[in-house]
Every structure is written in C-alpha cells, then in structure tokens.
Design a protein around this nucleic acid. Structure first.
Lengths: 191, 191
DNA sequence: GTCTATACGAAGATAGAC
DNA sequence: GTCTATCTTCGTATAGAC
C-alpha cells in the first residue's frame, strides 16, 4: 500500500472533527472510519474500548493545544494586559474565528455526558482560574474578577452557539472584539 | 385498556424532553416510545414522517409557549421597564431556572441541523427584535440596542451550556439576575 | 388509535488472516 | 497495523390485525 498513513495525532484530529460536527451519538464508526481512512478494526486497534476511547482521545488531543494556547498564556510572566490580549487572540484562533463548534458544548449532551462531564468542567475551571489570576493581579476585586471570568466562559459558549445557528461568525467575532475591554473595565492603566 | 391516554400536546411535550436531553441523533424511537408510552407504530400514526416529524412537532410545540411567554411580553403596551422584567422572569421559568437544555443548542448540532436551522434562527431573531424594540423605545441608540439584544441571546445560550457542564444552575441564575441591569444600563428613568 | 410482527439496514464490537 | 468477515443489538420504518 502506498497510502500515506496518518500519525496518531493526525488520526485523533480527524476524530475530533467528527465529534465536534456530529456530537457523540452522531459520530458513528462509519463516519469515524471514513474521516480517518481507517477500517473499523483499525480504529479498534488504536482505541480498544471503541467510541468512548475515541471521544476521550479527542478530548485529550484538544487538551494539549488548549492548555498551551488558552490556559498557559494567562500564567506567563508577561504583563497582565498583554496576557489578556494574547488570550483573546488565541481564543479566536482556537475556535477558528467562531466556525468551530466546541467539544464542551457537544459532549455535554446526551446519555454519555456524565462520562465526560468532569473533564469538560475542568476545562471551564482552568480558563476561569487563569482569568481570575490575571484580573486580581490587575487589582480587580476578587468577586468582580470571578464574575468576569464566568461571564467570559458564558460569552464564549453562547457566541459559538448563536454563531452556529445564525450561520455566520459575527456574534463570536463581536464577543472577541469586545472581550479585552469587558475584562479590563475599571482597571487602572498605571504604565 | 384503562391506560389514560395522553393528549397530542402532552405527547409532544414528552418528545420535546427527549430531544432536549439526548439531541437529535440520541433521541431514538425506543426512547421516544418509552417517554410517551406509545409503541413505535403509534408514534408513526401521529408523526407519519417519523423522527423528523417528531422533532418538528417538538419545535413547534415549544413555539407556542415561547412566543407567549418570551416574545409577546416584549410587545405589550406595558411600560418598557416592566416588559424587560417580565421577559426576564419568564425566561428563567422557560428554562426552568437553567436546568433545561435549549433546543436551539441541541438541534443545531449534527447532520440534520440544516433542516431545523431556519426555525432556530427565527427564534433567536424574534427575541432580538423584541428586545431591540423595547430598548430603542427606552431611548437607546439603535446600534447599542442591537448589540445588547445579541449579547442577551449569547448570555442565555452560554449560561445554559456552562450551567449544564458545571452541574449547577448558578451561571444561568447570575445571568438572569443581572440581565435587567445590563439591558437598561444608561437608560434614563424618567418617571 | 394502538397493538404485534416483521423487514432491513446501520450500529458497535470482535475474531482471525495477512 | 490493517484488512475481511462476522456477530449481535439497535436503529428506522412498515404491514396488517384488533
């Protein structure tokens, strides 16, 4: 066979896309097979426990880039204001300017939701903790900081849903555009 | 049979719940049959085109109460401020204080999404138009009004997702609590 | 209007050859 | 590590009796 075989991370990436687009129940083995170019048995070779393994791998595959691009940028030693802006930029890229459905949304629906829920919840908490840290460093009241961190998560998820339904990424992009301003409202810019 | 048979609207309500909880693909005929107490064939008697018919009926079933409770309250001749508050209260009740997943979210995922998308989109537009009307009546700049209407939809959908994943309705309830204030920011209260 | 029975394909999953 | 073949269960859907 001269077929160029995919690396594990490439396979997982294809799988990830299927789950994002179709949800857990809609991500059938046929679709996963087609998307990866692997037969069913090959999929079971890579993911012995089947679909649940694949969804877990997809979740974990997204985690790498998620932590790097979204979470860690909030914990660098760069100036707090700069961290907010990098977070915002990377967020937009991570969701492909709002065109990508979020796994957090999609995997929290249906019978298997309890399986993934702890991980999904952790993702939300990681972002909220990172934002909380940055905002309190900037002198914001902890109550307000916590609140803004939550509202940010709400804004991300909500704008993705609304963008998806409206058929354009306007809502997401407007959320992104106003995010730094919203987060930094009332912060003293003591250069 | 002494079984108390359900009315059509009761049947649709049960179906609605299944779609909300499991999404379109996860809402199998078995689940729908169990939830309604009707055999598969009976379901086909009521909904000849099968599952797609059921989902459409569920969507239409929710529309009645949606328009009454969420949209129409924005178009009454009550004072605009009062309309905002009634909208907020009814919104909270409609989503059962944040414990109910929204059909707009759930039916916009997966292969059949294009079938329902126009209707889902219309729901979002109905709310946004109603809010836009109230806010402009209150003297708000049209640009700002449009923006706040969109942010409200984003807040609703996002807080429902985050509440679901976090396993508590706190995010939704905080969104509800701050909604009137957010909407009415900068509005002159000329009694 | 609801039931039983049934069709038929697709679902997830496994065995074993190569 | 990928394939073909196969298994079982579940999926949607229909026919026809009551």
């Amino acid at each position: 066979m001269t077929t160029i075989s995919l690396s594990r991370s490439q396979i997982i990436d294809r799988i990830l896309t299927v789950f994002r687009q179709h949800g857990y129940e809609g991500a059938s083995l046929s679709r996963l097979s087609e998307a990866t170019g692997l037969g069913r048995s090959s999929l079971y070779h890579h993911f012995p426990k089947g679909k649940e393994d694949m969804a877990s791998a997809a979740l974990k595959g997204a985690e790498q880039i998620f932590i790097e691009q979204i979470v860690n940028v909030l914990h660098t030693d760069a100036p707090a204001l700069e961290r907010v802006h990098e977070f915002t930029r990377n967020l937009s890229a991570f969701y492909q300017e709002g065109f990508k459905t979020c796994l957090i949304d999609v995997l929290s629906i249906g019978e298997t939701a309890p399986v993934f829920q702890p991980f999904l919840r952790q993702r939300i908490e990681m972002i909220q903790e990172g934002l909380f840290k940055v905002l309190t460093e900037l002198g914001l009241d902890p109550e307000i900081a916590r609140r803004r961190a939550e509202n940010t998560m709400v804004g991300i998820q909500g704008s993705l849903v609304v963008s998806r339904v409206m058929g354009n990424n306007g809502p997401f992009m407007r959320m992104i555009e106003q995010l730094p301003e919203t987060l930094l409202q009332g912060v003293e810019v003591t250069a």
